[in-house]
Amino acid sequence: MNSTNETEAAKDPILTLNSIEVLYDSVLLAIKGVSLEVPNGGMVALLGANGAGKSTTLKAISGLLKAERGKVSRGEIRFDGQVIGDSPPQDRVGLGICHVIEGRRVFEHLTPDENLEAAAPISMSRQTLKSEKERIYSYFPRLAERKSAEAGYLSGGEQQMLAIGRALMTQPRLLMLDEPSLGLAPFLVVEIFDIIQKINREQGLSVLLVEQNAVAALKIVSHGYLIENGRVVMHDTAAALKANSDIQEFYLGGGEAKNFHDIKHYRRRKRWLT
């Protein structure tokens, strides 16, 4: 199944990043040449440690960089073959890019129902709005049970589900998830990842997943990119990444213990090489 996905991927990527560079406040270079591709209908993970530039990459794609006074200073982002340049976030959501930002960030003083309504395009008819909400509740039955409580009082897992559901209301073609597993119990991570996979399969929704939890992420994606210090240092299929001994050592918590000096040395060499 993976192999058919890959051939499709090669001819028809929904998202292409071509060596983009991001500057914060016109001085701080946060990412330095990230290139990646998300196949149409595929699932891709962006892995890496804290501060490697994963979130910044997503913000560059969704346009949220602007709110933090950052900008893409070099390279180009293509969505569905079209360069998205400098457009504001709401235009990109209109194109079909939706970014579930890190830390859930539901609208705390709104009910889950209102959270979903707030995200629906203003042009959506009442009827569609209703059926779309039903669809979201069918993916996340837990939310339906609590649809009139204030969202701030939901549990962490429920809030993450709401954040994903809210993003789905924007009718995305590409869903970008930033650390959906953060701070959640392992069984919830499994539940949420299962649902993401189900939506991907049923709706053909393309997914770009940013994760520190590489084990969970590599289970559901077809490809992975490893980002380190603002650069993509490795790119392969999920299976190959899982088998890679360096990845196992650094991100999957396996492999033999090495002494710290060697690790440092390895990393430095790795950066120079790429």
């Binding site: 990109r92 959501v93 960030r105 707030a118």
Partner: peptide, 8 residues
């Protein structure tokens, strides 16, 4: 931020 992220 969350508002921007869903196109508001």
């Amino acid at each position: 931020m969350a508002s921007w992220s869903v196109g508001i």
